[in-house]
Design a binder for these strands. Sequence first.
DNA 1: ACCACGACGAGAGCAGTGCTCTTGCTTTTG
DNA 2: CAAAAGCAAGAGCACTGCTCTCGTCGTGGT
Lengths: 246, 246
Amino acid sequence: MTRLQGARERARSDITAAIKEEARRQLVKQGADRLSLRSVARELGMVSSALYRYFPGRDELLTALIIDAYDALGVAAEQALAATPDEARRAADPQVHLRRWQAVCRAVRGWALEHPHEYALIYGSPVPGYAAPDATTDPAARTALALIAVLCDARAAGALRTPPSGPPPPATAQADAARLGARLDLALEPWLLVELVSVWAQLFGLVSFELFGHFQRVVDAREEFFDHATARLAYGMGLAGAGDPR
Amino acid sequence: MTRLQGARERARSDITAAIKEEARRQLVKQGADRLSLRSVARELGMVSSALYRYFPGRDELLTALIIDAYDALGVAAEQALAATPDEARRAADPQVHLRRWQAVCRAVRGWALEHPHEYALIYGSPVPGYAAPDATTDPAARTALALIAVLCDARAAGALRTPPSGPPPPATAQADAARLGARLDLALEPWLLVELVSVWAQLFGLVSFELFGHFQRVVDAREEFFDHATARLAYGMGLAGAGDPR
DNA sequence: ACCACGACGAGAGCAGTGCTCTTGCTTTTG
DNA sequence: CAAAAGCAAGAGCACTGCTCTCGTCGTGGT
């Protein structure tokens, strides 16, 4: 369906890519609010107004970068998932699901540490009055889906303590979760999904706090702390293998 | 010790306050990166350069607002704490500590929802290359200390399951926690402090996700969801009363 | 093969920004 | 009362995002 493009369209997509590339370069160097259309254009040897042939404005350029960032984090998570064998040793080793969980968590944190500005772009404060366009929601879901996959596989392998101890979610939350599960076509019980959503937010809370400097003079052994925290999150969801002490 | 100020010093502090006030007004309206020195000055009927007599630059003005925001959130948390009786019915009602915990959590979320831009300022992405000056760390700690207080009181009242189930923290994290506990002069076991730090970050992860729009089309019953999540956080720390289902 | 249309790059220009420097004025201080 | 210090104002610099116009050049239809 992608018919051979003429020289013009080819040039267009090349230049669009070059713009995004240069913009990303500036982004990683100086952060989102220092990203300037003019300096991107300058660096590319064109005049600022020419840039508007490719992006309607600064916000749209940023949106493109946001989508790329979501995707990049998503593939990082997916790769971590793929790197740890799944079906193969199902039930053979009850610890495998915990390891997969932690692998994905580590991948998220690792990517964030490697791309702090891009992470801040997607999980920091939303820019000005900027409302995330729908185009961002799908890429944003990739990482969450990787986390979900771990739990689904563990569930299928019977590696989940169910239900986990602790207070049960309220009916409204379960209803939300049921809708979400239906939309994503998931085979998870609503209450489990509720916990997962909560854990999902909490995971990014850990990463954000570390990245945004709130652990300064509080936590020094960041990596060990993170691993421990994610293990506890897994334990809280009833992931077998996470656990019981000493 | 604060001797009577001359008319000049009085005027100075008045104007400084007016600047911060107007700046905050613009902040709540349009967010941090739309805050402009010039428009603050304009609104105050002075010229932009005059503002530099009071703040060395835009960053310093922002820093002042950041400190104010930390303080405002801190008092919100402290008020929530003060509003729920503590020593009085110690051990009489084991649920009281859970209620206090949730009161503080709700106060944090409530303040965040009421002051989204100020929340974003302190818990969103740090501005450009901006490193939080030391002056911000103390106000920032107030909220955390309110959370800690709940746990300390619960601990003192013997309302804590100790140790909670789940994987124990690694030695390095416990060492960090021990240092932190010593610095703050706390009577909490290191492993408990480790959990608390983790829960602290996770709590703000929940608030940030809600505020920054990541719960769009995922969680509808935000308040119930939040209450449930914080109850589970409490349960994870072994707070009695948080608990055992059905 | 031509030609009109559309995409394109360049440039000028507008309104706005943070920040600096100089110039006078006013208040405080010695 | 005079000198010193604090202060507001204005002009100015180097930027920013964005718009509009004006030649140019590739492309699809006739």
